[in-house]
Simulated assay, not measured.
Amino acid sequence: MSPTAVSTAPRSPRRVALTRSTGAFRRFTLLVVISLVLIAAGGILGLMIGSHSIPAGTVLEALRAYDPGIDDHRIVILSRLPRTVIALLVGLALGLAGSLMQSVTRNPLADPGLLGVNAGASAAVVVAIAFLGVSTVQGYIWFAFGGAALTSLLVYMLGSAHRSAATPARLALAGAAVSVALGAVVGAILISHEQAFNAFRYWAVGSTLGRGLDVALVVLPFIGVGVLVSIVLIPSLNAVALGEDVARSIGATPGLARAGSALAVVLLAGAATAAAGPIGFVGLAAPHIVRAIVGPDHRYLIPGVLVVGPAFLVVADVIGRAVVAPQELQTGISVAILGGPLFVALVRSRRMAAL
C-alpha cells in the first residue's frame, strides 16, 4: 500500500467531532480571557474617567482605604463604582436574554424588545411618574420590572393562544402588536403630563449613571435566577436547535424549553431595563460575537455571553465617557454608537441576505 493511500484515508466521524470540539474549546477559552481582560481594564478606566479625572493611585487608595472626607474617594465609591457594577449586571442580563431569544425564536435580529420588555417597562414607569408621583430610580424600578414582566407574559400568552404553539412568528407578531399599543399609550400620557415627560426622558435614554448599589442589590436576585434557568436549559436549547421533531425524538420538550426561556428573558431583560432603562444593541451584539467565534453550541454560547455582554457594555460606557470628556455621555447613546455599525454589518452579511 502506498503512503499516499494511507494519508488520504478519510478520518472517522468521531475524530472529526473531537477535533471540532477541541477547537471550539480553545476559541472559547481565548474569548473568555480577552473578555475578562476587557472587563478589568474597562472597570479600572471607568473609575478613573469622567467629568473629573482621578489618578489610578487615588482610585486604588479609595478601594483599599475609603475616606469619606476626600472628594475623589466619594466620587469613586459612591458614583463610579456603582455605575460599573450596574453596567456589568445589565450587560450580562441583556446579552443572555438576547441569546435566549435568538435561539428560541430562530430570529438573528431578536433582542429583549421583541417580547415587549421595553414597551412594558416604559408604560409602567410613565404611569408611576404621571399618576403616582414616583420620582426616584429606587421608586420606579419596581414598576419598570413589573411592567416588563407582565407585558412579556402577555406576549407569550397571545403567541400561544387558541391551543397553538408559541412559534417564533407568532411571538414576534404578538410582541410587535403589544409594543405598538403600549407605545401609543405612553405617547398620549407624556403629551399631557410635562412633569412625566421631563422625568421619563432621562430614564428612556438608557443610563447606568446615577444608580446606586441599592439598585444593583434589587435586581441581582432576578438576574441570578435568570442565569440559573438559562444554564439548566442548555441541553434543551441544543436539542431544539436541531428541529422540533428531532428534539422530541431524543427526549426533549420544545414547549418546556420555550416556556423556560421566556421566563429567563422576563427576569433578565426586565431587571436590566428596570435598572438602567431600555439599552439596545447589547442583546443583539453579544450573542452574535460569541456565536461567530465559538459556533452555535449552547454549551459555549451561554457561558460566553456571560462574559462578552458585560465586557461590551463596560467598554462602550468607558469609550462614551472618554470621547466627550469632561462631559458625560449616556450609556444608551454610547452603546448605540458602538453597536450601530455592528448592526449594519449584520444586516448586510450573506447569512442575513439569505433570510
Rank of each mutant, 00 (worst) to 15 (best):
H193M: 12
A264H: 02
L256K: 09
V290A: 07
Y300N: 06
V180R: 06
Y156T: 01
A353Q: 14
R83P: 04
L109P: 07
L228I: 12
A144N: 01
A93T: 01
V315Q: 05
S135F: 13
R163V: 14
M1I: 14
V126Y: 05
L38Y: 08
A271M: 07
G91Y: 00
A322G: 03
V85C: 09
L63M: 08
T273R: 00
G295V: 02
A354C: 06
G277P: 09
V180T: 10
Q330V: 09
A259N: 11
L88V: 14
S230T: 02
V265N: 01
R14Q: 15
R26L: 15
L217D: 05
A353N: 15
L173R: 03
A97I: 00
V314W: 01
Y202T: 13
S122T: 11
G260C: 07
A123P: 08
D72I: 12
A316G: 07
A144K: 02
V104R: 04
R64W: 15
M352Y: 12
I129C: 06
L154P: 10
V6R: 13
I302K: 01
G133K: 02
V282P: 00
V335P: 10
R163P: 13
A199C: 08
I231M: 11
P10R: 01
F145C: 01
L158A: 04
H52L: 13
G251C: 10
P341E: 05
N198L: 11
V219Q: 08
A272R: 08
A336G: 09
S79Q: 13
S12A: 15
A216F: 05
A216C: 02
R351T: 15
G95R: 02
F131V: 04
G42R: 02
S152D: 00
R11G: 11
G212L: 04
T8G: 08
R163A: 14
I34F: 10
V232H: 04
I54V: 15
M157C: 14
V137A: 12
R321L: 04
A148V: 00
R291Y: 11
